[in-house]
Amino acid sequence: MTANALYELSNLSKRYTRGREEITIFSDLDMAIPHGDFIAIMGPSGSGKTTLLNLLGGIDAPSSGEVRFEGARIDNLSQAKLSKWRAANAGFIFQFYNLMPTLTAAQNVELPLLLTKLSGKERRKRIATALEIVGIADRAGHRPRQLSGGQQQRVAIARAIVADPKVLLADEPTGDLDRASADETLKTLQLLNSEMGKTIVMVTHDPAAAKYAKRELHLDKGRFVEKEALA
């Protein structure tokens, strides 16, 4: 095991079967993500970026190979154990925010806390802090349709961090935002990484977004390609 590694992927393969055709997304992928990293995974459509993120988040299973999180395999956990693992360790940020339209911003942020044993008072305190961090405390009582795209994404980030997970997995977090809102969102992620030590894995096709990360990894035809090699 690599010292200080949060994630270790070894010989990771993902294949789909479509009819009689087997499609390989990637095969024998090896990778390590240390604690406190902020990686931008880039690549063309269909290169397997989102699939990789799904495997890291335990919402998809590899065809072969291992995904280790703090040294323990998560690729072979049952659905029930994976649910608990996700609740304790991973925060998700999606391109389309995935907020519950009928709940207020605060209620959306509260969702991960409902899986903990925290009291109502403690939950309210955490919600307020999370909304404060992403700078949207004044919109706590608003429903998603009353918020702009950028504000909704901030609520989604607050939801992702409120239970204090070890890793944030962001799938095209700025894909649906204008440049200004995108920059605000990325600065927030950068702040969460630099000030709070959150490990962040971000999938993006936007080179400007990738620049906010500590490092970039390019996935192409199922393999990581060095940035220099692309030039």
Partner: peptide, 14 residues
Amino acid sequence: VREIATLRALGFSG
């Protein structure tokens, strides 16, 4: 479907 999947991704049980 997307809401349910999101809740599941957050750690809610089936």
